[in-house]
Design a protein around this nucleic acid. Sequence first.
DNA 1: GGTTTGCTTCGTAAAATTACGATGGACGGA
DNA 2: TCCGTCCATCGTAATTTTACGAAGCAAACC
Lengths: 114, 114
Amino acid sequence: MKTIDGLTTEEERAAAIFRALGNPARIRIVTELARRNACVAGDLVDVLPLAQSTVSQHLKVLKEAGIVRGVTNGDNACYCLEPDVVRWLAAFCTDICCPPGLGESLSANAVCCD
Amino acid sequence: MKTIDGLTTEEERAAAIFRALGNPARIRIVTELARRNACVAGDLVDVLPLAQSTVSQHLKVLKEAGIVRGVTNGDNACYCLEPDVVRWLAAFCTDICCPPGLGESLSANAVCCD
DNA sequence: GGTTTGCTTCGTAAAATTACGATGGACGGA
DNA sequence: TCCGTCCATCGTAATTTTACGAAGCAAACC
């Protein structure tokens, strides 16, 4: 991907978060973390049909995107969602639905090109 | 990416939508469509610091993910958001925030591994 | 000290993504 | 009919992603 001047850091940030979620395995990880509130890495490996090293890499991607936090307490590593980032994501998506200043735009049945 | 049996189509679908949004240029396109409600392709090219063919490809990606709808009326092509998909996306993100059955989970200040 | 356990990081091959210019096709105007 | 405009698609090169096994590393256990 080209590093584009014309695009804001806000957009870059949004894209980075979306890209991190753009993989079924990572979606599963995130939903699992949402469901269980926190999770040992090994439990996530059990849930996914992937090699342990691959899951570890996916966790790294999520961590680098700021979606997930991980702490290594002694023997095993524990992960959970980063609440602020998840909330930011939800707000961003809601804004696309109903951009501020446009009333309910998509809430109505907007049709293409009228 | 490996096609994984152990993952649901729901997860695949979510990942496909997120992946489609995982690019700054496409984020810009989507926000622009949200702001203007509908857009001629050429206007999007003007807004983005990218070649026309590249923008067209980005639009194709968004269309294939179902996020965007495009109609070609005579000379120029007009695009707009697909309201249902955008709403689905917002709902998905909100669910991660507050998974059903877990009360307000992340609404409180959840901390990692307590 | 030596092993096992749990996880991360490295190295690598295959596949996908990103961007561009060039080409092509449909429509409208001179 | 011949251009010009608008847009999609093709072909291509560079980069990124994905997944795996191998290797490394720290804590726990014998």
